[in-house]
Simulated assay, not measured.
Amino acid sequence: MRPYRAVIVGTGGIAHAHAEALTSLGSSRVQLVGAVDVDAGRAEEFAKKWEIPQAATALADVLADGVDLVHVCTPPGSHVELATQALEAGATVVVEKPIAVSLASVDELLAAEASSSGSVAVVSQHRFGSGARKLRGIVESGSFGRPLIATCHTQWYRDAAYFTVPWRGSFEIEGGGPTMGHGIHQMDLLLATLGEWDQVTAVAARTSRDTDTEDVSMALVTFDSGVLASVVNSVVSPRQTSTLRFDFENATVDLEHLYGYTDDDFTVTAAPGFEDEVAAAWSKGPTGQPSNHLAQLSAVLDGLDAGTTPPVPLRTARATLELVAAIYKSAFLARPVHRGEITPQDPFASRMNGTGAPWSGS
């Protein structure tokens, strides 16, 4: 089998994580054949760094060469257009989070995927670390008892200079603030662990950053299983951390990291009297895999090899984006929001700020 031919669209910071992962997988399995960026100089510089033979300013310029994989690493507002273009060429698309700036845009992409021989995988690298996979196995087996409560906190720090980049802090281009662009990875892992959510009650505020979006949000999420979870998303927290905590009947599992975790970032605490069985259960399952792009992109290629849909499929990722939209709707309308409530006719389906952020004056 010939190696897969891959291109990267958008050559900013996150594109280097994709290039490093693809390079690590070996040229006999995948080859980077194109780098695309609206800034020709940046595309050429990226291509030179990663020894990519072609640099271009338009995706169409490289699709004609029989590309198998298109990695979309541009600002969120352009994801759907670029992914659709790649799907029309029959390529498989790997899209960075957030997938799109609205649920309506995701549904457009789902329609494009349905009429294509290609498919869409959404970057959700925290699902692929061995610790998270082991934790999901614990939930499925019930070996720690039922999960009861959880916390999911993304408390990062982005100063005023960070938001001088034109597309940042914009509902139109970025889709939202830390709820959309920063906490979405932790929230995705929360859903991957606990399953379907049922209701959310949230608040959001613009506390100090000069943006159109929030810089802090907080939410209480109820899951179908009855689990209650608190969610915090912030870009005004000087001590940066990403934390997830799951309290089961017989144990607590803590994960604390920043942008990626290893097995050592998990702590397991048994309830009194359950020490031996908790230790035995946690000792089983996968080990040694950090959460990173390499883990997910390797799984994407495995899916292509097997002729199956690569993980994480677009419809799965949509569920995470629906939670984001529900947090905004609940915060801006000051009421609980249920899963499935945001129908195509809802203003919060077509844009995350829906009827307008309270501080926008609209």
Rank of each mutant, 00 (worst) to 15 (best):
V94P: 03
V221W: 04
I8N: 11
R146F: 00
R335T: 10
D224F: 09
A19N: 04
E172A: 14
H338D: 15
T207W: 05
A104V: 04
D212C: 06
V33F: 00
A89K: 01
T179I: 04
A47E: 01
S237M: 07
G273L: 02
P178C: 11
E81L: 10
G288K: 09
V95A: 14
S283K: 07
S78I: 00
V93Y: 00
V139S: 09
S242G: 13
K49P: 00
L148A: 08
S102K: 05
T193P: 12
D302G: 08
P311D: 03
V278A: 05
V300P: 14
H182C: 11
A100S: 05
T92Y: 10
T207F: 02
D302T: 11
Y259L: 13
E196C: 13
S78Y: 11
V30N: 09
R5T: 00
S141C: 12
E44M: 12
N292V: 05
Q296Y: 02
T243G: 12
A112T: 09
A89R: 10
P147N: 10
T201A: 07
M1F: 05
W156T: 10
W359Y: 05
V216H: 06
M187Q: 13
G142H: 02
T309F: 01
I342N: 14
A281W: 03
T252E: 04
R5V: 01
E81V: 09
G176R: 12
I184W: 07
I52A: 09
I149Y: 02
G10F: 03
R133P: 13
V235K: 09
E108Q: 15
D224I: 04
D254F: 08
S141K: 12
V278H: 02
V33E: 12
T316D: 14
E174A: 15
A47G: 14
A83R: 06
G26D: 00
P272S: 13
W197V: 12
D254T: 05
E88P: 02
R339E: 00
E341Q: 10
T23L: 05
V93N: 07
T355V: 15
D37S: 07
T213E: 04
M352W: 06
T179L: 03
S78L: 07
Q289C: 00
P344S: 12
A15K: 10
T252H: 01
S362Q: 14
L194A: 10
V139K: 01
V9D: 04
T179F: 01
A58M: 05
G90N: 03
T308S: 11
R127V: 11
W167R: 06
G307H: 06
H338I: 00
D188G: 15
E172V: 03
S350E: 02
S105V: 03
R146E: 14
